[in-house]
Simulated assay, not measured.
Amino acid sequence: MDPTSLPVARLDVDVDLGFALFFFFLLCFFLLVTIVRCAQMVLDPYRAVTVTTYQEEQSED
């Protein structure tokens, strides 16, 4: 039997495509986290302010 006629099981992996997809999904993840954080700040802006800073601002008025 000719050795070149045997089926060769090899894995064709495009490394550049893998890196591009990895960084694309990483970018999408950070974008999603940023959107969630911004939405939280818009809905409740005073939650991010510490209590002492908020009290100091109120006592100056």
Score class of each variant (00 low, 15 high):
residue 29 F to V: 05
residue 30 F to I: 04
residue 13 V to D: 02
residue 33 V to A: 13
residue 21 L to C: 11
residue 10 R to L: 05
residue 34 T to I: 00
residue 41 M to L: 05
residue 48 A to H: 09
residue 7 P to C: 07
residue 44 D to Y: 10
residue 57 E to Q: 14
residue 16 D to L: 10
residue 60 E to G: 03
residue 30 F to P: 03
residue 39 A to P: 05
residue 43 L to N: 10
residue 28 C to T: 08
residue 55 Q to W: 08
residue 52 T to S: 14
residue 13 V to E: 00
residue 56 E to K: 14
residue 29 F to K: 08
residue 26 L to K: 09
residue 57 E to Y: 13
residue 55 Q to Y: 10
residue 10 R to D: 08
residue 35 I to N: 07
residue 32 L to Q: 10
residue 42 V to D: 06
residue 20 A to V: 15
residue 59 S to D: 01
residue 48 A to Y: 10
residue 32 L to V: 14
residue 56 E to T: 06
residue 33 V to F: 09
residue 33 V to H: 01
residue 3 P to Y: 05
residue 31 L to W: 13
residue 19 F to L: 15
residue 24 F to Y: 15
residue 4 T to V: 12
residue 28 C to D: 01
residue 45 P to D: 03
residue 55 Q to S: 11
residue 17 L to H: 14
residue 1 M to T: 00
residue 25 F to Q: 07
residue 46 Y to C: 05
residue 12 D to H: 13
residue 57 E to K: 15
residue 59 S to F: 00
residue 13 V to Y: 01
residue 5 S to N: 11
residue 19 F to D: 09
residue 22 F to W: 03
residue 36 V to Y: 08
residue 3 P to H: 06
residue 35 I to D: 02
residue 37 R to H: 08
residue 16 D to Y: 08
residue 6 L to K: 07
residue 60 E to P: 00
residue 25 F to N: 09
residue 11 L to M: 12
residue 15 V to Y: 06
residue 38 C to A: 06
residue 21 L to F: 15
residue 47 R to K: 07
residue 27 L to G: 13
residue 31 L to I: 12
residue 40 Q to D: 09
residue 21 L to N: 14
residue 3 P to K: 06
residue 11 L to D: 09
residue 35 I to E: 05
residue 13 V to H: 01
residue 13 V to W: 01
residue 17 L to V: 14
residue 21 L to I: 13
residue 7 P to V: 11
residue 9 A to I: 10
residue 48 A to I: 05
residue 6 L to E: 05
residue 15 V to E: 08
residue 5 S to P: 00
residue 56 E to I: 03
residue 30 F to A: 00
residue 14 D to W: 02
residue 6 L to V: 03
residue 48 A to R: 01
residue 13 V to M: 05
residue 60 E to Q: 06
residue 9 A to M: 06
residue 23 F to P: 00
residue 2 D to G: 11
residue 57 E to R: 15
residue 24 F to D: 07
residue 5 S to M: 13
residue 50 T to N: 15
residue 53 T to S: 02
residue 26 L to H: 03
residue 8 V to L: 07
residue 35 I to G: 10
residue 57 E to C: 07
residue 42 V to C: 10
residue 44 D to R: 12
residue 23 F to I: 10
residue 56 E to R: 11
